[in-house]
Design a protein around this nucleic acid. Structure first.
Length: 926
RNA sequence: GCCUAGGUGGUGGAACUGGUAGACACGCAGGACUUAAAAUCCUGUUCCCGUUAAGGGAGUGCGGGUUCGAUUCCCGCCCUAGGUACCA
């Protein structure tokens, strides 16, 4: 029988499922290894051929690690709360839970077709009450915690209450809201319950605060910044406005420093680390106050406090709260018109317009904090209200934007360093000694900064300060299909429900839209009250809630008493390898690290970082095909279609054509006639008897007819071919377009493997003879290559190496049992079905490859034979030396001189130097 | 602008710490088997010159440099992709 992928793959997928072959043991004496995929959102469209790329890579790695003797945890689940199911519910009335269930079943079917080695007994679904119960529980932990900066960790809110009871707010060093009160212990005890709770809320890691949010009226919900694109919603393109709302927030800024320093301890791709660093945006500097008369002052943040004496003016953001008060009557008209102009500019305009210098003088002056000189106060839109204090001190000699601004408005430019050259532009160097700088004149940068900070602190006009770009994360969504927040309100104060009342189930509603009064959809749930009287929180949690801790649940997914038992967490610790797309760099990956740290601080586990090694798989783009429809004189489409090479001779327009009826860019013209009814009588202008289609790389989407479903590939070529081919396509981390052009080669490879160990009649046929040296060499080459490749995630070159290996074995007509047995083990991670079949044909126990031992590479088999090897003379390739000459340096020199063949190349010149690489002469310098 | 990754045949890509550039695969061309097709196998395939050939020359985005030797290291520039943005 020839290689029949269909029956082989179905047989083994069934066997693995029935025998739970890949169920992970709870505990074992093997070392553990945790391989995790970013779990998918189960969308209605199903998987396309791009989705499994990362899953295949992680599956190869998992299977490889099992063979290497590790106890591997390799689970899968679904991030099943989300907007698409809710949108569908709004349109059709179908409950999102039903939609989600249907989609998950479809995903599962498609995943199973590919032959993954997931332990499905550990599956999680974030929308499942058994799961979101623990998401709610973690929310409670966050609510019940505060960040103690002295201990540099989160602690139970009870320790804060104890401090308030004993010392009041004295000596509390916490991450908190800006507006915390100052009180003594006696005051605290005298506070009403309501006052106490309001104060505590300012310290909690999950807290309620009025924040400006992106409100989308059409969707009736708040959107994250990255869900808003150019002022409209990413989904649907509805207008978005800024609105103040009471919102749940997460005090992620408390962890800014740890989130930053933790990046040094993880093995992540550099671009991704860089993205997180930028996102956190730490700047070390100082805050400085420029006093106003008669009282008050403008606080600015600067990273270059040493340039303080170069300040020639101060700039406020147009939205800054002091602008109104500082504007003099003469300047009022100009200032107001400027503010109005800025407000009209969209963010896009402001971005595009970085070249134009604009700003207005307010008419007022501040005092320089040290010299007391008058400093003009300006407003300009290059200063952002949302960053720092919304005000900057302008140092034209040291900052290019300030320089351009000063030139434009004829403001003074004061050089402050003897090493500055400010003829043409600002010079921010820190190398020289200061001039024009009062008491720091003659100092270096290193001396000046502490001196200035000390002086400012003495004057109470400034201090060293660290500023972060990152903001606290808003944690509420005005949506239905998310986790309910386990909170109710009494006198407007949020209280947690009791732990034993979890899960707080998502209530049924009649419609999935906001209420008539603008409340979130949960407001529609009839009689949904805590203890029949208190209003529940009506927002649900955002999409990232459930995904911020899911790797813990896989460790112990059935546990009813805790999110994961201590034993499970202590055993599995952190994820050793995490594979997913880079689009989650500043969302999921940051929030997950945050929750992980909180849970660590609260003593639930020991790991500071959740994902030790991370690989980003590149996106697989679509590769669209085009046909060219000839137009008539009036510009209307005819039923003639011209092949790519001839299209320039005609007036024609490109049309997307379904990539599934195109093979190697050659159109199947018969299938094309049934593609659309109006193509039924299509005529073709061919080249060389073929219709060649044009191509273009685009995103994979239905409307472009370039979606390739993995099921179709599997039907034609099988899952093993799909797995190998997706790896063969190129480096894992690189984005690449999908095309089926090379898949035949991979399919041929598998058939060759099959035929090598079957006779002409199709019967399994192995020889019991001892393999020859050449056969061992072919085998051990692949053992070494695959091991090296997998360890550095270079899967594509392994596939090539397999092909070479099998070509060599075919050449040698090698069907030896010993060779096959080891070849199966090495190939199994890539092509698990065909190897499982051959494994059992050899008489081994079914489903037991993962207990096999990975063959040990023996370098002796790879020792070069007596063949000649190349040597260059003066770096130019000249000749081959027989291996017999490969002796030590001295001997070679003698032989070289005496060898007539060599002498011919050397033109009688003396040998100056012999270059050796790995004990071999590689080059002769004459 | 800044950060990151990359630029190699008709195509996808290989070359791991500098050592015969183009592995492997697709495609293409020719051939074998076959009544024929499919399947399979063999040969060739970077470009240019050379009648096939022997042989020679150029060649890894561009221009320099280091080295006996550079796709690889260094400097400058161009282009592409992703991220980020008037961040003080």
């Amino acid at each position: 029988m020839d290689y029949n992928h269909r029956s082989i793959e179905q047989k083994w997928q069934k066997f693995w499922a029935e025998n739970q072959t890949f169920k992970t043991a709870e505990s074992t004496d093997k070392p553990k290894y945790y391989v995790l995929d970013m779990f998918p959102y189960p969308s209605g469209a199903g998987l396309h051929v791009g989705h499994p790329l990362g899953y295949i890579a992680s599956d190869i790695f998992s299977r490889y690690k099992r063979l290497k003797g590790f106890n591997v945890l390799h689970p899968m689940g679904y991030d099943s709360f989300g907007l698409p199911a809710e949108q569908y519910a709004i349109q059709t009335g179908q409950h999102p839970a039903i939609t989600t269930e249907v989609n998950i079943n479809r995903y599962r079917e498609q995943l199973d077709n590919i032959g993954f080695s997931y332990d499905w007994s550990r599956e999680v679904r974030t929308s499942n009450p058994d799961y979101y119960r623990w998401t709610q529980w973690i929310f409670m932990q966050l609510f019940n915690s505060w960040y103690n900066k002295d201990a540099d960790k989160a602690e139970s809110i009870d320790t804060l209450i104890d401090k308030f009871n004993s010392f009041g707010s004295q000596g509390i060093n916490a991450e908190s809201d800006e507006d915390v009160s100052v009180f003594f212990a006696a005051d605290w005890k005298a506070f009403s319950e309501e006052e106490q709770q309001r104060e505590l809320l300012k310290y909690r890691l999950a807290y309620l605060r009025e924040s400006t949010v992106n409100w989308c009226a059409a969707l009736g919900t708040v959107l994250a910044n990255d869900e808003v694109i150019n002022g409209v919603s990413e989904r649907g393109g509805y207008p978005v406005e800024q609105k103040k709302m009471m919102q749940w927030s997460m005090r992620i800024t408390a962890y800014a420093d740890r989130l930053l320093s933790g990046l040094d301890s993880v093995d992540w791709p550099e671009p991704l680390v860089e993205m997180q660093r930028n996102w956190i945006g730490k700047s070390i500097g100082a805050s400085v106050i420029f006093p106003l008369t008669p009282k008050g002052g403008i606080e600015v943040f600067t990273t270059r406090v040493d340039t303080l004496f170069g300040v020639s003016f101060v700039v406020l953001a147009p939205e800054h709260e002091l602008v109104e008060a500082l504007t003099t009557d003469e300047q009022r008209a100009a200032v107001e018109s400027y503010i109005e102009k800025t407000a009209k500019k969209s963010e896009l305009d402001r971005m595009a317009d970085t070249k134009t210098v604009s700003g207005v003088f307010t008419g007022s002056y501040a005092k320089h904090p040290i010299t007391g000189d008058d400093v003009q106060i300006w407003i300009a839109d290059y200063v952002l209200a949302g960053y720092g204090t919304g005000a900057v001190m302008a140092v034209p000699s040291g900052d290019q934007r300030d320089y351009v601004f000063a030139k434009h408005f004829n403001l003074p430019i004061i050089p402050i360093s003897d090493s500055q050259n400010i003829e043409e532009q600002a010079d921010p160097n820190k190398d020289g000694k200061y001039i024009n700088s009062d008491f720091i004149n003659g100092m270096t940068y290193k001396e000046a900064v502490p001196a200035l900070v000390a002086k400012l602190e003495e004057l109470k006009l400034g201090k060293a300060k660290v500023n972060f770009r990152m903001r606290d994360a808003i944690f509420g969504r005005q949506r239905y299909w998310g986790e309910p927040v386990p909170v109710y309100f009494k006198s407007g104060i949020p209280y947690l429900i009791k732990e034993e009342e979890l899960p707080l189930l998502l209530p049924e509603v009649d419609k999935y839209l906001p209420t008539e009064t603008g409340e979130p959809p949960l407001g529609r749930a009839e009689g949904w009250k805590y203890q029949d009287q208190y209003e529940y929180e009506l927002s649900t949690m955002p999409g990232w809630a459930g995904s911020s801790w899911y790797w813990f649940r896989y460790m112990d997914s059935q546990n009813q008493d805790i999110f994961a038992s201590k034993e499970a967490v202590d055993y599995w610790k952190a994820v050793d390898l995490y594979i997913g797309g880079s689009e989650h760099a500043t969302g999921h990956l940051l929030y997950s690290r945050f929750w992980n740290k909180v849970l660590k601080d609260l003593g639930f586990h020991q790991e500071e970082e959740p994902f030790k090694k991370l690989i980003n798989q590149g996106m697989i783009q679509g590769r669209s095909n085009f046909v060219y429809r000839v137009l008539d004189d009036e510009g209307k489409g005819t039923n003639q279609f011209v092949s790519l090479g001839l299209k320039d001779q005609y007036n024609c327009i490109p049309l997307h054509v379904d990539v599934n009826i195109v093979y190697n860019d050659v159109l199947d013209t018969e299938k094309f006639k049934t593609f659309r009814p109006d193509f039924a009588d299509a005529e073709f202008i061919l080249e060389n008897g073929k219709y060649i289609c044009g191509t273009e790389v685009e995103k994979m989407s239905k409307s472009k007819f370039n979606v390739v479903n993995p099921d179709d590939i599997i039907e034609t070529y099988g899952a093993d071919t799909l797995r190998l081919y997706e790896m063969f396509l190129g480096p894992l981390e690189q984005a690449k377009p999908w095309n089926t052009n090379g898949i035949e080669g991979v399919y041929k490879f598998l058939r060759k493997v099959w035929r090598l160990f079957h006779d002409a009649e199709g019967n399994f046929n192995v020889s019991e003879e001892e393999p020859t040296k050449a056969e061992y060499k072919a085998l051990h080459k692949i053992i070494k290559k695959v091991e090296d490749d997998i360890e550095r995630f270079s899967f594509n070159t392994s596939v090539s190496a397999f092909m070479i290996c099998v070509n060599e074995l075919t050449e040698l007509r090698c069907n030896k049992r010993q060779i096959l047995q080891d070849l199966i083990i090495v190939l199994e991670p890539y092509a698990p079905h065909i190897t499982e079949e051959l494994w059992t044909l050899l008489g081994n126990e079914a489903g037991a490859i993962s207990y096999a031992t990975y063959p040990i590479f023996n370098p002796e088999y790879l020792v070069e034979s007596e063949f000649a090897y190349p040597v260059s003379i003066n770096g130019k390739m000249k000749m081959n030396l027989p291996l017999a000459l490969d002796l030590d340096a001295k001997a070679v020199e003698e032989i070289v001189i005496g060898n007539t063949d060599v002498q011919r190349y050397l033109d009688g010149k003396a040998v100056k130097k012999l270059i050796f690489v790995k004990g071999k002469i590689i080059n002769i310098v004459v």
